[in-house]
Structure formats: C-alpha cells, structure tokens
Design a binder for these strands. Structure first.
Lengths: 108, 108
DNA sequence: ACCTCATATGAACACTTGTTCATATAAATA
DNA sequence: TATTTATATGAACAAGTGTTCATATGAGGT
C-alpha cells in the first residue's frame, strides 16, 4: 500500500493476474462500441422492447438484436416477455457506476 | 430522478448527448485491449521506461511502443526523460477507479 | 562531432468487428 | 391449429485493430 502511487484503494489492485486483466479488457470491450453504449444508456431510464430500442437509436432491428445478444451473453441485460414482445432491462446497476466514472474522466 | 431505475447518481446520467456517449465508448475502447490494460496495471505500482514495460509483459519493444502512443494520445500516461530512457507514468488516478469498478463487476 | 542505443514509426499481415440483407424461429392470439 | 409478427440468426462485406519486421529518429555520452 505504501508504494502505491495512486493512493487509497477500494479493492486492492496489487497482484491481479493476467487472466483477470484479460477479463477486465473483455468487459471494457463491451463498452467500446457506441451502439452498445447508447443501448445501455437508453435502458438507464426505461426498460424497452427491441423495436423500441431500435426506434430510439434510429437503427435497424437486426443491428440492435445482434448487439443485445452480446449484452445478454455478458449478463449485462436481462429479458422478460410481455405478450409478443421481449423487454430488455439492465441486469444490475454496476454499469451505471462505471459509466459515471468514465463520463467524469471525459468531462474534466 | 424519481423515474431513475438504478438509484442514486453521482453525475446525472439523464440527457447525455450521443456525442458524449461516443466519447465514452472511445474511452472504454482504450481499455478494451489486454496489452494496454496490462501496461496500465503495471504502471499502478511503478513508473517504468519502455524496455522495462516490454520485459515485464514479455512482449516486443515495438508492440509496447505502439500501444504507449495510444495511451499518450489519450492523455492517460505522461512521460519524462531520464538519461537515455523515457519513463512512463500514469497521468492521473482516475483510471484506477475505473479499473476497480470493472474488477468488482467481474469478481462478483 | 560522432557514435550508440532507447524509442518511435511505417508498411504489411492476419484477425476481429459491426452492419446489412435475407430468412429462420417461436410464442401469441384469432 | 394456423397465422401473424416480434425477435433471432447466418452469411457476406467493409472497416478497423494489434503485432511483427525493418528502419528511422534523436538525445546522450564520450
């Protein structure tokens, strides 16, 4: 801790394995596409079905569906059925914090 | 705020422009490569010159130098000269917080 | 001033990624 | 059960990315 140049820690950052660091990179890779970022951001306010998301972003249903699959596989979104449509919502609010930190870095 | 599904905010997440969201994606894109993540992580402990980083990661000097250029252009690392070598250090400790949040998400 | 050597750069390559278009799938409702 | 329709999927393509190899650059030390 004493030789830690960047100050206090919440989770200790020493001794993180290369595998964990690779997983970390994979997580950030999901946030590295603006379509996915816009999808996530739009889900902060309301849960939505696929077509609503597509309409909100002004993109094709297929493109959105492909991206939703990636978000699903990473357990970042959850789904539930409502009649004929499938409604997407964020899996947890961890992403919110990560986005906040990122935005703070950008707008400084 | 009342209709915010994910709870309290530090920085308000409503009304973020598409341009800001694109910038956010670009920031995460930098963290989406495991080499860059490993470089950043190794700089948490000590500042290092290019060859030291390459040796630490077991990679070629050229590969590291290419990645350091990306980190430099994003103002994530700073350089100073020490004799013949150029020493890299993190520009600020914002990255540390972002990494922590990411690691917490992974290890939960 | 001239080497030396650490770092930076450019071209080439294989690999990955996001979108579109066309179509398959499957649950709902008549 | 048949039909409808929202969503998912696969192939194809263009664009982007990270590494290697070879070489340029330029500041340091003599």
């Amino acid at each position: 801790m004493a030789d830690n140049k960047v100050g206090k820690t919440v989770k200790e950052m020493d001794y993180v394995s290369d595998e964990e660091l690779a997983d970390l990179a994979d997580l950030f890779k999901i946030f590295s596409d603006s379509t996915r970022v816009r999808i996530i951001h739009s889900l902060f306010k309301n849960e939505m079905n696929v077509q609503e998301i597509a309409d909100t972003l002004g993109m094709q249903q297929s493109a959105i569906s492909h991206q939703l699959r990636i978000l699903r596989q990473s357990n970042l979104v959850k789904t539930k059925r409502n009649g004929k449509t499938i409604i997407y919502k964020l899996a947890d609010d961890h992403v919110y914090t990560i986005f906040e930190q990122g935005l703070e870095h950008i707008t400084e």
